[in-house]
Write a protein that binds this DNA or RNA. Structure first.
Lengths: 136, 136
DNA sequence: GTAATTGCAAACCGTTTGCACCCGA
DNA sequence: TCGGGTGCAAACGGTTTGCAATTAC
């Protein structure tokens, strides 16, 4: 776990932060509400305010990355700067599948160059129906 | 203008709807707040509720498309089913540049197939600094 | 000890909705 | 006429914040 990242910034390593980090090892993609539910289930009562504050702090310090797959609520995942990836999102069951395609990455760079644009970040979200949901 | 689309669905062609449609011919990308401001500037006082209702109706009927470039508010543009495109978004001045790359589209299809996924929609947003903003 | 963290409740902000009135076809 | 459209104010839902108490280091 990236406990070192947290402590190197003068942040304190609290029970709640640990509990939230642990959740991310079990569930790759989590939103604030889901975190709240899961923590409650394990008897860990954490206020919503704290969850948002922890997530904001984690994001600022590069521990997690925030996504906006749908307009409703933000989804977070552990940051991994060495393994960029994009997402397939099932609009039925909300399952998220990660993928990486270096040809697409290269084409994006070309497009940026053509438009004299300096890319800082990008999101490629493919929305559709996953194999499970296609059956039903 | 796609006035026919509106009327063929039993919708009424009101002054407000016309005014909003006209705005989209001048500004490709608009959010509810911007629309409100622009309408006020031309002396056209329209309540926020109406703007949201018109946009929702337009979206439902395929007149406009909604985007969530940033987490704050939704951005709309006129729908054009024959000319799909993706976006470069300047994080400094919020300028939006459209692009289309058929190789990327093909690669997306491949990825979907590999994951037994049926793509319904996708968003490719490249965030960065535009040529104008790079200078300053 | 002291600065970061937390819980609570209230505030925020974009968006939606209930209701009574208005208007386009 | 009549069903869609509109304004107003209140509601909503995710998220943020002020404040006083708590805790990690």
């Amino acid at each position: 776990m990236n406990l070192d990242i947290i402590q190197n910034k003068g942040l304190k390593l609290t029970k709640h932060k640990l509990a939230i980090l642990k959740l991310f090892e079990l569930h790759k993609h989590l939103d604030a509400h889901k975190i709240n539910t899961l923590l409650n289930e394990e008897g860990n009562n954490v206020s919503a305010a704290t969850i948002y504050r922890v997530l904001a702090s984690f994001e600022k310090n590069g521990v997690v990355v925030r996504h906006n797959f749908n307009e409703d609520q933000a989804v977070y995942e552990l940051a991994d700067p060495n393994h960029h990836h994009d997402h397939l999102i099932c609009t039925k069951c909300n399952k998220v599948i990660e993928f990486y395609n270096c040809q697409i990455e290269l084409l994006q760079e070309e497009i940026a160059k053509k438009n004299s644009f300096k890319i800082i970040n990008h999101h490629l979200n493919l929305y559709g129906i996953c194999s499970e949901c296609k059956k039903t």
